[in-house]
Amino acid sequence: MSNTLTEMLIAALALPATCRVDQRVPKKMLVENAASAKADRRLINDVVEEIQWLAALKPNTVGVAEYRDDECEYLEVAVLSITARHAPMDGDAGSKKRPVDITRMAELVHRAVPYPVLLLLAAPHGLFLSLAHKRWAQNEAGKVVLTDEPTTVGLALDLTPEHPFVQALAFARQPQANLLILYQGWMDCVTALQAAQYTGNFTESHSPAEASARREALRTCRRLEKEIARLRALAVREKQIAKQVELNLALKHINAELILAREQL
């Protein structure tokens, strides 16, 4: 099912033929460029089945200008597809498997490639779309680091070509003043989908300011949800009635804040 979704998403991007690469990338290149830690090398070797470099979006392949400033440069956007499998459990050569660590795998890929990446990661339990902005490292000349954690979203298995999110991904529908703004257009699509997981409706942002406000509201929702989970766990363990009342009042207050944050999505 993930492979079918991957093919659909690739088609939905509607990338110009002039930027298509369609080359297989050796797994060892990802290991060499991303995995300094033994656990990361093992993750890549255990779960990655195939890496495909689908496209290279450059000024001369898509007609979108590069972007440079003192903090970053966007000379190219790489589109990659990775197929992953479950890894065996530690010390178990039998049939038991452990799920793919999607968050860590996506981060390793983004760190390995010097350009911003639009990553399609197909795992046994679904398809994930991931993006991450990059900037110059402050203490190492010429080195690029991630601006923040990658923005990664899982896609519903019943997603269809008619879904507004899928249609919104088309290259021609992204802003094209330069490659940074183009990349941000795709990231805003992912943000809109993440918001839809709260609201039930997918709606594109109408301006950069609206997209920024939506990202902030999402961060607030996640922070409040973590705090709610923490307080609920404390309330379950608390034996004193007065403390239970205090925790329940705090939960009520934070739930009200969460409702307000969701309204900003």
Results as ranks from 00 to 15, higher is better:
A112P: 06
V145Y: 07
L43Q: 04
L157I: 15
A168K: 04
K226R: 13
A123Q: 09
R232T: 01
L182Y: 15
E49V: 05
N248A: 08
V62A: 13
A209G: 07
E73F: 14
L15A: 05
N201E: 14
K28E: 15
V190P: 03
L43V: 13
D92E: 12
T191R: 07
T203M: 11
R222F: 11
R20W: 08
A209C: 00
R104D: 02
E204P: 07
L75N: 11
A11T: 10
R237P: 01
V77Y: 04
R230I: 02
V62P: 13
Q174D: 09
D148Q: 05
V77R: 04
H86L: 09
A233Y: 02
R215Q: 14
E227Q: 13
E73H: 07
A141S: 06
F171N: 05
V145K: 04
Q176D: 13
L131F: 04
A14D: 14
L155W: 05
A37N: 07
C19E: 02
E246T: 08
A123P: 03
A229V: 00
S205L: 13
G126H: 08
A211Y: 12
A55I: 05
V62S: 06
Q244A: 04
E204T: 14
K243F: 03
A84L: 08
L218K: 06
H206M: 12
R232M: 07
E7M: 11
D70T: 06
L13M: 10
D46P: 00
I181Y: 12
L119W: 09
L118Q: 10
K252H: 13
E149L: 08
I10L: 12
P26L: 08
L13T: 01
V77H: 06
T61W: 11
D70N: 10
I10V: 07
P16K: 00
V236I: 10
G126Y: 04
I44V: 14
A78E: 06
I254Q: 05
L157K: 14
N60T: 12
K27R: 15
Q176V: 06
N201A: 14
Q244V: 02
K143H: 05
R222A: 07
Q138A: 01
V47I: 13
N248E: 14
R135E: 15
K134I: 09
T6L: 13
R42I: 03
I228S: 03
V79N: 08
R232D: 00
L258V: 04
M187T: 13
K28D: 15
L54Y: 14
L5G: 06
E210V: 12
K226Y: 00
S2E: 05
R41A: 11
Q194E: 06
L265E: 01
D46M: 10
N60K: 14
W53P: 09
E227W: 01
G126C: 08
G200A: 01
K27W: 02
T152K: 06
A55K: 01
A211R: 05
H125W: 09
L180W: 09
T151C: 15
E76D: 03
L182Q: 11
G142D: 04
D101V: 06
L30F: 11
L146S: 08
N255Q: 10
R98I: 15
T191C: 01
L224Y: 11
L118Y: 03
Y198H: 10
R230F: 03
A39I: 09
G200Q: 11
